[in-house]
Structure formats: structure tokens, C-alpha cells
Amino acid sequence: MSCTMFWNGTPIPFRNGESVANALLIAGISQFGTAFAGQPRAVFCGIGLCQGCLIRADGCLTEACLLAARDGLHLSPEAGGSDV
């Protein structure tokens, strides 16, 4: 397993067992999108309560802090509009 996922097509390495949020933060990506009122989507509570880190993962809207990173996962920012 190469332990690589993709953020907007850019390869992001991760360690086995790491969450998508942690792998992105370690790779220097801290804004995951923009919520519909214009506020940035980013990690806030880190435990799945605040819904601040919503991200598109293989097309599905989900919390980056709860999602396990996996090989070949395609991530993209969520630009609001269709909120949850």
C-alpha cells in the first residue's frame, strides 16, 4: 500500500490509521472548503461534533476528522450550497 490520497488531485501521504483531517493538516492544508455563509471549513472540535471540517470524499460529504484516510481516496473542498 502506498498510503497516498488526493486533495484536488494533489497526492497527500498518510500513515496507516490516520484520519483525513490529520493527514491534511500535517501536509499543510488547513482550510477544507467554504460553508454557505462564507465561513471557512476547518477542523474545530476534532471529534465529529461541530461539523466544521466537512469535506467531499469520493463524492460524499463527510467529517474529515472522523474519516479514516485510505489509499486512492479523492478529496475536494466543499463550497457550501448543498449543506448536509
Partner: peptide
Amino acid sequence: GARETVQPRPGWTLVGVETVGSFQTRLKTT
């Protein structure tokens, strides 16, 4: 479990502002 209470302040929605618990869980896993 618990949720953290965080009092609102101007700028608390900026990227880079997190709860202490968020930093702590990240530190423990990574």
C-alpha cells in the same frame, strides 16, 4: 462523552483556531 464549551470571541471562526481537545486528540493519535 463530553463536548467542550468554547466562549465566542471575535475571530474564533478563523482557520487555525480549534478547541484544546481537538489539539489534544490529534497529538495523541499522531
